[in-house]
Every structure is written in structure tokens, then in C-alpha cells.
């Protein structure tokens, strides 16, 4: 039998976290939930989650949906940190490339 490049599993199993050198950490106490990071993420690996954060700048913000980074796919490009208007995403060294 010949081999053909056909996969019986979803491409979701292809994690790209090991491509990462730095990882983004969101300081939720400063995050105003503008979702600019979500819009700019080139890998679509920022999810918008209801009650995704425990901290917020205000009581009203705490009730809003929050951005959560999927560390299985984040390649650490830093675009989210660069675009964040509140400067509340910090890129920190991620030596293992794993979350």
C-alpha cells in the first residue's frame, strides 16, 4: 500500500506553542476589554470569554467579556502587546515554549 498525506485527526492537534520565545501576559486589572488585541491577533488565538478574568479596572468592566489567549497556538509574535492602548500586555520570556 502507498502512503498518502491524509490525516484522520483535526489540525487542532497541531499545536504551535513550541514556536514561541516570549509569551503575552495580560494584566486584567488594567484591561479595559476594548478587544483590540483580539482583532489584531494574526493567528486568531485570542478568545473572547464571558467571565474570563477575575480582575478589572472597575466593577462595570468586571462584568464584561474578556480576552483570553490560547497558549496552545500563540506563537508569541507580540502584536497584541504592541497594539494594546492601555499597555497592559507584557511579553515575558517563555523558555520552555509551553504554558
Amino acid at each position: 500500500m502507498i502512503m498518502a498525506p491524509i490525516a484522520d485527526v483535526s489540525s487542532r492537534v497541531n499545536h504551535t506553542d513550541s514556536w514561541r520565545i516570549q509569551k503575552p501576559i495580560i494584566d486584567y486589572s488594567k484591561c479595559i476589554r476594548c478587544m483590540i488585541c483580539w482583532k489584531f491577533c494574526p493567528d486568531a488565538c485570542i478568545d473572547v470569554v464571558d467571565g474570563g478574568a477575575i480582575a478589572a479596572p472597575s466593577e462595570r468592566t468586571l462584568k464584561m467579556e474578556a480576552p483570553v489567549i490560547d497558549m496552545d497556538y500563540c506563537k508569541g509574535c507580540g502584536i497584541c502587546a504592541n497594539e494594546c492602548p492601555e499597555k497592559c500586555i507584557e511579553m515575558v520570556l517563555d523558555e520552555k515554549g509551553e504554558d
Binding site: 502512503m3 491524509i6 490525516a7 484522520d8 485527526v9
Partner: peptide
């Protein structure tokens, strides 16, 4: 199924090329 999808360096990439040569 996934057809011709992403295969990392330690995936069966070289094996597929070798198999094509065998065929």
C-alpha cells in the same frame, strides 16, 4: 479528513517523499 495538511519536521514528511520515490 485532513488532505495534505500541516506536517512538522518530525511528522511523516520525509517518509511520504520516500514512499513516493518507492512508488
Amino acid at each position: 479528513m485532513g488532505y495534505g495538511s500541516y506536517t512538522p519536521p518530525d511528522g511523516p514528511f520525509m517518509e511520504l517523499k520516500k514512499d513516493l520515490m518507492e512508488s
